[in-house]
């Protein structure tokens, strides 16, 4: 009887170990591969490991005049502009959606969702042809506009949820003691919604930093953001540069994901249903 349970236990452990290893490989594998590639100075097939390891490509990428650095600044500039614009739109929009009875509220939210609902490629191709008419193709403005379309969905939804999670009575208590609307908003509502707004900004920032498809159609080849440069590099079989960029792009994403986890409260997620 005991032997049977013991064999079962071993069987379970072995199966579990295999499963965990496979899942781990699936997640860590490509990341580890990218990391190794970024340090590989020579790596010829079929060797399992690089023949020569070093910081050559990192140095080249991070030197002041390199294309990688140039793209990094373009990417950061665009991301910051997108965050600012997205917040300027979603803070008032989110507050209004959370607090007021707006006719067609649901339809409004669906409109924000629209670009995500369709296959992205035709949406971007259409946008590109529209942008040609207004001379926006190949400009920072055009790329910012595309990024906004992609990220507004998150930012409006998260800010709406953030405002909704603040009980109205907290605002009423302030009004009751003599605060006008502006004071209530800046002293009560905004500080309380801040974690949600920060979470929303981070989402937008990362979305903009990693956005490829829209940027490719509207911006390339004049606007070379990091993802575009990475694509170009990997298409030219320059795996080392592509990998360096990939690692560079992962760092802020990882960092912010850790921050985000602290800010994104469960009630924001549940508050999403408007």
């Amino acid at each position: 009887m005991q032997d049977v349970t013991r064999t079962n236990w071993w069987k379970r452990m072995i199966l579990r170990t295999i499963a965990v290893t496979l899942i781990g490989l699936a997640i860590i594998g490509p990341l580890a591969g990218t990391l190794i590639w970024s340090f590989a100075e020579k790596w010829y097939w079929p060797s399992a490991f690089p023949q020569q390891v070093g910081l050559k490509y990192w140095k080249a990428s991070l030197s002041g005049q390199s294309q990688v650095m140039e793209s990094l600044w373009v990417s950061l500039l665009i991301a910051v502009i997108v965050v600012v614009l997205a917040m300027l739109i979603s803070v008032p929009a989110g507050y209004a959606l959370a607090r007021y009875d707006i006719p067609w509220k649901r339809i409004l939210l669906v409109i924000f969702l629209m670009p995500q609902a369709f296959p992205q490629l035709p949406v971007f191709i259409n946008m590109t042809s529209m942008f040609y008419r207004y001379n926006l193709v190949g400009t920072v403005t055009g790329v910012v506009a595309v990024h906004l379309v992609v990220s507004l969905v998150y930012s409006v939804w998260i800010t709406t949820a953030a405002f909704k999670s603040i009980p109205v009575s907290l605002e009423e208590a302030a009004v009751n003691l003599g605060a006008n609307r502006l004071k209530v908003f800046f002293r009560i509502t905004l500080p309380l919604a801040a974690p949600g707004l920060i979470a929303s900004s981070i989402f937008v920032f990362i979305t903009s930093l990693d956005e490829f498809t829209g940027t490719f159609f509207v911006g390339a080849p004049f606007i070379q953001t990091l993802p575009i440069l990475m694509y170009t590099a990997s298409m030219g079989y320059n795996m080392q540069y592509a990998s360096v960029i990939a690692v560079l792009l992962t760092i802020p994403a990882l960092f912010f994901m850790l921050v985000l986890e602290r800010f994104l409260k469960a009630e924001y997620i549940s508050g999403l249903g408007v």
Binding site: S169, A173, N176, L192
Partner: peptide, 10 residues
């Protein structure tokens, strides 16, 4: 001056 059921402290 109002006192709320939920206290409504900030």
């Amino acid at each position: 001056a109002m006192v709320f059921q939920s206290y409504a402290l900030w």
